[in-house]
C-alpha cells in the first residue's frame, strides 16, 4: 500500500519531470529554420525586426548563422541533414554550392509566389536560387581630390591615379573577380576575354588591393584610395555623414552583386524555407531592408522613398544597366585565374 508521504514524493517527482521536460516537448513541436545571413546593419534589422516577425507569423524559430564562410560549413555537413535550410550568399557561391549538389537549381513562383513579381535578372539563367536584392558594382571616388566623376571603367587606369586606385585581391573577393571579367569586356571581346583582362589588370598597377568591401570603404573614407571598385551600397550608406565620397555607374554598365537565397535539397523543413524566401520578397520587407542598407530590391512592386528611389535600381530601365557575370564559367576556371592574377599583381 502506498503511504501518503510516498504519494506526495511521487507527485513532486512527476511535477519536476513535467517542468523540466516541457520546453523540450514544446521545442519538438516548433519547427526550426536554419539560415545564413549577413552581419552589420543588415544583421541588426534581420535579428531585431524581420526574423522575430517571421517566427511569430509562421510559429517557428529561426537559427541565423552570421559567421563566414558558409559554404565550407555546408560542404562539411550531411546532404541529408544539412547545416542550413536556406543559404544566403552572393551568386558566385551559390553556383559553387549548386555544382556540388548542395542547393536547388531554380526557385519558381510555384514554390515561392512572390517570385512572379521579381525583375527578370533575379531569376535569369545566370542565377541559381532567387535574387532578393542586388547592388551595383561600379566606381567609388573621392569628391575632394579634384577628380572628375568617372564615366567609364577605363577611368580607373588614369595615370593620375597611380598608387591611389583601389581593387580587390581577386582570388578571395567576388567584386575583384567581377571586375576582372569587366576588364575583358571593356578592353577585349567580352566578359570571358581573359587575355585582354590580364593585360588591362597589369596596366592598373600600382593598385591598392584589399580582401573585402568593408576595407575598401575605409580606404576611400581615409583618402588612402582616391578611386576604387566598390558596390553602390558601400558608398551610399555614408550619405548624410558629410563624407567626401560618391558612387559612379560607368557607361559600359554596372556589375550585379546579387543577394541570393536558395533552399538545400536535404532540408527537413523545405516548405518553411520556401515560405521564408517568399516572406523576404514581400514588398514591405523588401522596402524595410532596402532602405536600411541601400540594396536595390528585386521585387518590382516595391515603392521606395524618393531619396532611395533616386539612387537605387528600381525601374526596368535602371535594372537594364546591370551586367550579370557567368559565375559557372568563372568558377570552372578559378584555379587557373587565381594563379595568373597572383603572379600579375605580385610585386
Amino acid at each position: 500500500m502506498i503511504s501518503r508521504r510516498k504519494a506526495l514524493h511521487a507527485g513532486a517527482g512527476l511535477a519536476v519531470l513535467a517542468t523540466v521536460g516541457a520546453p523540450s516537448i514544446l521545442h519538438a513541436q516548433t519547427k526550426t529554420l536554419k539560415i545564413t545571413t549577413w552581419g552589420g546593419k543588415w544583421g541588426e534589422v534581420m535579428k531585431g525586426t524581420v526574423l522575430p516577425a517571421f517566427e511569430k507569423e509562421f510559429k517557428c524559430t529561426v537559427s541565423a548563422d552570421q559567421a563566414f564562410p558558409f559554404v565550407p560549413k555546408l560542404q562539411a555537413s550531411s546532404k541529408n541533414d544539412p547545416i542550413y535550410d536556406v543559404l544566403h550568399t552572393n551568386s558566385n557561391e551559390q553556383w559553387n554550392s549548386f555544382t556540388e549538389g548542395l542547393v536547388m537549381e531554380k526557385i519558381t513562383a510555384k514554390e515561392v509566389p512572390n517570385v512572379a513579381d521579381v525583375y527578370p535578372y533575379a531569376v535569369s539563367d545566370k542565377i541559381v536560387g532567387v535574387t532578393i536584392f542586388t547592388s551595383a558594382i561600379g566606381l567609388g571616388y573621392r569628391t575632394d581630390k579634384g577628380l572628375t566623376k568617372p564615366t567609364s571603367w577605363k577611368d580607373l587606369a588614369d595615370p593620375k591615379l597611380a598608387g591611389a586606385r583601389g581593387g580587390y585581391i581577386i582570388p578571395v573577393n567576388s567584386l575583384g573577380q567581377a571586375h576582372l571579367m569587366m576588364l575583358g569586356k571593356v578592353y577585349g571581346k567580352g566578359l570571358t576575354d581573359l587575355d585582354a583582362a590580364y593585360k588591362a589588370l597589369e596596366a592598373l598597377k600600382p593598385i591598392k588591393l584589399v580582401d573585402f568591401t568593408g576595407q575598401m570603404e575605409k580606404m576611400l573614407l581615409s583618402g588612402e584610395v582616391s578611386e576604387g571598385v566598390i558596390h553602390d551600397s558601400g558608398v551610399y550608406r555614408y550619405e548624410g555623414q558629410n563624407q567626401p565620397v560618391d558612387f559612379a555607374g560607368p557607361s559600359e554598365g554596372v556589375l550585379a552583386l546579387e543577394q541570393v537565397l536558395n533552399v538545400t535539397p536535404g532540408s527537413k523543413v523545405k516548405e518553411l524555407g520556401f515560405a521564408y524566401i517568399d516572406y523576404m520578397l514581400r514588398p514591405d520587407i523588401q522596402k524595410m531592408l532596402a532602405e536600411a542598407v541601400w540594396y536595390s530590391p528585386a521585387n518590382k512592386k516595391v515603392k521606395l522613398d524618393a531619396k532611395y528611389d533616386a539612387k537605387l535600381l528600381t525601374t526596368e530601365a535602371k535594372v537594364a544597366t546591370l551586367i550579370q557575370p557567368d559565375w559557372k564559367w568563372y568558377n570552372a576556371r578559378k584555379e587557373d585565374i587565381d594563379a595568373r592574377v597572383t603572379k600579375i599583381l605580385k610585386g
Binding site: F68, V71, Q75, E335, K346, G347
Partner: peptide, 26 residues
C-alpha cells in the same frame, strides 16, 4: 600577413584559407 602584405605577400596559411573559404577545395 593578409592585412599587411597586400598582394606582395602570399603565405601558405593565406593559400589554405583561400582554398577553404573561396575556392571551396578542402
Amino acid at each position: 600577413p593578409s592585412l599587411m602584405g597586400g598582394t606582395d605577400v602570399l603565405t601558405l596559411p593565406m593559400l589554405i584559407a583561400q582554398q577553404v573559404g573561396t575556392s571551396f577545395n578542402p
